[in-house]
Design a protein around this nucleic acid. Structure first.
Lengths: 249, 249
DNA sequence: GAGTGGTCTAGACCACTGT
DNA sequence: CAGTGGTCTAGACCACTCC
């Protein structure tokens, strides 16, 4: 590799270039969630590098959670629909006090279109007034309501999402599974900002707790490829019978 | 990097055995925090394997946060006293609303001995009635109180810890830095259980907020080598001017 | 048995740090 | 310059899955 003397020489190892190429293939949906990607040898031929170099690229993509290696079978594109054991607690860290981590039941309440206000526009990186889709729903663990949330999505990407679709999809997978399979948008990572708030009458009723009780306010921004924000979510977690678990390392 | 806990490993690759040997050396303090460990070639000779195998063992230990690789210099034992940029937010995820992540000022309030109750005994895995050391302190960001906490430590390990020591150490590093340098106990990972609660009069006064305001209750258990619990901490975070940030991936 | 990922080795060379 | 970690290659062999 030759470097231009006028530009700052930035060294990028070969395996990272391969990783970038594979990222493009993933983003372009050449390989789709749940599918198997070509074998290491095939990829080595395709990119004209050694198998070890392709291997290191795949290793990083797997560490990033984008690929899934299965010895003896192949390497697969990670999918929210995998129903992998980890999927239930990957993004929702709320756990019943007296039980194991479990996937809650989703109860869609409303779904409507709106125009992005200043905050939604800033966070979702769309124009002020651009169409957005808003979902309001409830999550229950063993029949007990634990979460109320409003989810703001850029309307461009999710223009056919409606309450009926949400209801039909109930029990068939997670919300992100729906977004991935029906809209081709895969959430890769998210940031949550957590604060303590007081329940207002409406949400207290939905969560079946008393007004004035403390709740966790969890504000989440989720990102897809290229660190593009595609979801803004404001949730209220009842911690009367559940807790938010975070592992630090 | 991680192995499935549900399946019994039927085969242990060489690099994992090397990793286990290096873990023992770390635990036995043959290599101390902040120090450089032998070079890859030296370790390859010592363990009678190839450099690549030692390399993979080191890679995993570095990924686990136990070692720190510095190209051109060597591999170092990670230390809480490194004052690495990440150290401030590694275990404390509280961030001022209007500023950058920063390390808070610690204000020790009390430090006393006690006997472990049932809960402390269970969590710290010591006998009921065993001696424990309790620290009560306040954390401030830019002079504003944000956290009140009580820290429960097994008395065996920290029998000389007192208020004077805590006060003298103020500003010289983090609490975990003190435990590491003065008591040889290094925290490797922790679990936090987060709930929303209402401030009682005492803690409201300490946090300079009004009684009845909502707070985050953060219960932390920290572990050292061998998943041994060595700290139980109960904290109250004021989220009036701060938020708890969690990155999901 | 064929095909996949996983391990281990040996050697060459590159990039970074300090002397 | 020497010493360190970082990259890349090529090949042999092992472990796992499925036909």
């Amino acid at each position: 590799m030759s470097s231009d003397a006028t530009t700052i020489p930035t060294f990028s190892p070969l395996y990272r270039q391969i990783k970038a190429l594979m990222l493009r293939a993933l983003e372009a949906a050449e390989w789709r969630p749940g599918e198997m990607i070509p074998s290491e040898v095939d990829l080595a031929v395709r990119f004209n590098v050694s198998q070890g170099t392709v291997r290191k690229a795949i290793d990083e993509l797997a560490a990033d959670g984008l690929l899934l290696r299965r010895q003896g079978k192949g390497t697969y594109v990670a999918s929210h629909a995998d129903a992998g054991s980890r999927e239930g607690t990957r993004f929702l860290r709320l756990i019943p006090e007296d039980g194991q981590p479990q996937t809650p039941q989703s109860v869609p309440l409303e779904c409507w279109r709106a125009k992005a206000g200043h905050e939604a526009a800033r966070i979702l990186q769309v124009a002020f007034g651009a169409p957005i889709t808003i979902v309001r729903r409830l999550l229950k663990f063993s029949g007990r309501p634990a979460v109320v949330e409003e989810i703001y999505l850029p309307g461009e990407l999710f223009d056919t999402l409606d309450l009926e679709m949400l209801q039909q999809y109930q029990g068939q997978g997670t919300f992100y599974g729906l977004l991935e399979s029906h809209f081709g948008v895969r959430m890769l990572r998210a940031e949550e900002r957590i604060r303590a708030v007081i329940a207002d009458p409406l949400n207290a009723r939905l969560l079946e707790i008393e007004q004035g009780q403390p709740l966790l306010s969890v504000e989440r921004v989720s990102y897809t490829y290229g660190n593009r924000p595609v979801e803004w979510r404001q949730s209220l977690y009842s911690t009367a019978a559940h807790y938010y678990l975070n592992e630090l390392s």
